[in-house]
């Protein structure tokens, strides 16, 4: 068992330092790159917070949908193959819901401010 602080706490501390103390000191291309870097750290923080739960749900849903057991990567490959061959399509019960759920879970980590994502959240 690793000690504290947690990875999230460490990343947050680094992000806070860069934002508060470095960002005001730089400009131009370096400032742009710092903004992108801070976005990357924020993304990692969201992934650390959300990934284990969303992966568990996705794995369970895929097992039900496909009638198979395996790792998340194996199950996703199996689903991709079935869609490619036409064995599964939007008429397959549960498929559209599954794709929506997993895609929304990706956006929650990758780009929670993406306008199309925010629009879809309003539907819930």
């Amino acid at each position: 068992m690793q000690d504290e602080p947690t990875p999230s706490e460490l990343i947050q501390a680094v992000a806070d330092f860069l934002r508060a103390e470095i960002a005001p000191q730089i400009s131009g291309h370096a400032a742009f790159k710092l903004r992108v870097s801070l976005n990357a750290l924020d993304l990692v923080l969201r992934q650390l917070a959300l990934e284990s739960d969303s992966d568990a749900v996705e794995t369970a849903d895929l097992s039900t949908l496909l009638g198979l057991h395996g790792s998340l990567a194996e199950l996703n490959r199996a689903l991709a193959d079935r869609i490619a061959t036409g064995e599964a399509d939007l008429q397959t019960p549960g498929l559209a819901d599954h794709l929506w759920k997993t895609t929304l879970a990706k956006l929650a980590v990758d780009q929670p401010n993406y306008a199309a994502y925010k629009r879809e959240l309003e539907r819930k």
Partner: peptide, 24 residues
């Protein structure tokens, strides 16, 4: 890091594709 982060924008096109092909 810019290129790396663009990789994480591919999910944006997945939600756009679902909105086009499987609208809720």
């Amino acid at each position: 890091v810019e290129r790396a982060m663009i990789g994480r924008r591919s999910s944006e096109t997945e939600i756009d594709l679902l909105r086009l092909l499987a609208p809720r």
